[in-house]
Every structure is written in C-alpha cells, then in structure tokens.
Amino acid sequence: MTRPFRFGVVAPIRTDLPTWRDHVRRIADSGYSTLLMPDVAQWQPAPGPALATAAALTDLRVGTWVYASPLRPAWMTAWEAHSLSVLTEGRFEMGIGTGRPGMEDELRAKGIPVVAPSERLTQIRETVRALRELDGSDLRTPVAMAVRGAKAQALAAEVADTVTFALMPEESRADVARLVSDFRAIGDRELALHVSVVGDSVAPFMAPPDTDPAALRAADSLAILPSDPAAAIDEIQRRRAELGFSYFVFGGDSADTMAPVVAELAGR
C-alpha cells in the first residue's frame, strides 16, 4: 500500500519562548503534520509540557521523537502519553525506543539501573500495554517505535503504528534497504525516515555535531536530503517508491528550507 506523505519537525526549545512559539506557528502554517520533541534530559524542557504548549498554539499533531524507555517506569510514560492524548483531543503520537547510543552512561549518571536490551524491549511492551489500558475503548494513542534488530522489529510489528529505523548517519541506502526488507517480511506499518541533515545543515538532537554532510553524500546515506526543493522532492518520491518511506522527519533548523517540499507533497 502506498501511504500519503506527511512530514514532522523535531523542534526542541533552544531559544526564548516567544521565538520558539513563532517557530511552531510557522511550522503549522507550512503544512507539516507533526511537531516532535526529543527525550533529552536537562538540554531542554521536558517533552510533555513542551508538547502540551505547542498543541495549545496550533492544530498540529504533536509527539515524542522518541521516549527513551530506560529513563522512566513504563506506567509513568504511559500515563503521560495518555494524558497528552486527552489534553490534545487525540493529536498526540507516542514515539518510543530503547535509547540513544551511549544511553548507559546517562543512566549511570542519573542513578538509574542499566538493563539489557531485551529488558528495554520489555519496558516498551509494558508501556504500550499500560497505554492501551488507560486509553480504553474511546481513545487510541498512535505509537511510533524506533527499531533496529530482529526482536525490536518483531515487537514493532505487533504494537506500533509507525516504525522508524535506528540508523547511523553513514549507513548506505543499500543497508537501509535490507532493514526495510526484513521488516516488511513481518509487518506493514507506516515507515518514517529520520533525516538529520539537509544540505550542509546538521540538526541538533538528531545527529552528532561532528556529522560530515559530504561523507553522508558520498555514502549515499538516507540521513541527508538536498536543500534544493526540486531535488529534495525527487529524492523523497524515490524513497517512497523504492523503500516505502512516507513519513519524513526533519530538524527544526531545516523546517523553513523544506517548507516548499511539504507544500508540494503533503497528503499526496
């Protein structure tokens, strides 16, 4: 099934609040589907209050990109996600994963036990189970899951509505094609692509600051798109036709650059 295009923006609060609020309104006016928040403690306000604020400003959908399952009890994440669904009248999407590379150091620094990857997947399963119980029969919060290995893919095929792959920026198109093929063998879900670089602009919170755009282009990485709108439109259409990606997530600093692309493709 060919799904229509939609576009999200990871837009953490990195400026004064009036500037950020103006940015959120501009994102909404440009036709983006979703405003997203990373789960990075102490670098920005917590995702829940920030997303509730964004949802009150516009009619955008809002979501986490993504909750790190080891950072909090499953029931707490589920309660916050359900609460955001209620407060936004169904416009919240819960993104969740097992954590960024180096998560173990962050957990130790916060005094949180470091658990094995399999236990992190169990935490995700328990979070979604608790969320479904809280939602009841009148509400269904969409779940986006960041996956990599076979066990994570299997869980996503079972519980997620949207799947994004936890990729290293330098991985090639061929590498991603294999991951997509493996997943498509077990599940048909909306596929989201995390695009951390547009032209030579590297998005904070989405890629390491030392990411080299030229190296990504040389590797034929899907983590980068051209800044020229016409070229980006062609490449995005290619990625849906060849790989099935229909939901594209950009960094906040590239939202204006990609606005003509969104205007052309959103909903098609």
Rank of each mutant, 00 (worst) to 15 (best):
V180E: 02
V159Q: 10
V128I: 05
G251C: 08
H194S: 07
E80I: 11
G267W: 15
A215T: 14
A116K: 12
L121C: 05
M258E: 12
A174Q: 15
Q44R: 07
F183E: 04
W20A: 00
T211D: 11
S30E: 11
V195I: 10
T164I: 04
I236R: 06
E126Y: 09
A160W: 05
V24S: 13
I186F: 09
V24F: 08
A255V: 09
A154S: 03
T19N: 06
I124W: 06
R240H: 03
A214S: 01
T58V: 10
R6Y: 14
S118Y: 13
M76G: 12
A41D: 15
M168Q: 07
T122V: 13
R178N: 14
L139R: 09
F165M: 03
R26K: 12
A177C: 05
V10P: 07
L193H: 00
E80P: 02
P142I: 00
R6Q: 03
Y247I: 03
P204A: 01
R178E: 15
V10C: 08
A152K: 15
D175S: 10
P49C: 04
P47I: 08
R72L: 08
A109K: 01
V115S: 02
A207C: 02
P226N: 11
A46C: 04
V176A: 04
I233M: 12
Q42W: 15
E104C: 09
A46F: 13
E93R: 06
V159R: 15
T2R: 10
P169L: 13
T141P: 00
A166W: 11
D210C: 06
T77C: 11
S181N: 08
E80S: 15
E106Y: 11
R125Q: 09
D234Q: 10
A130L: 04
T211A: 04
E171I: 10
A174T: 13
L84F: 10
A255E: 10
S201W: 14
D135W: 00
S137G: 07
V9N: 00
D16S: 01
I96C: 06
A154Y: 05
P213S: 13
A223V: 04
P45K: 00
L121Y: 13
T127L: 01
E158R: 05
L60R: 02
S33D: 09
Q44H: 06
V198I: 11
P169A: 12
S201A: 10
L36Y: 01
E170M: 13
R14P: 04
A174L: 03
G252C: 06
E89Q: 11
P12N: 01
V163P: 15
G90N: 06
F183Q: 04
A56H: 08
A214K: 09
I224Y: 00
P209K: 14
M103D: 03
F5G: 02
G97I: 15
S172Y: 06
Q237T: 07
T34G: 12
A50E: 06
T19D: 09
I13G: 08
G48H: 11
P169T: 08
W79Y: 02
L35I: 07
K151S: 07
T162W: 14
E106M: 14
P208L: 02
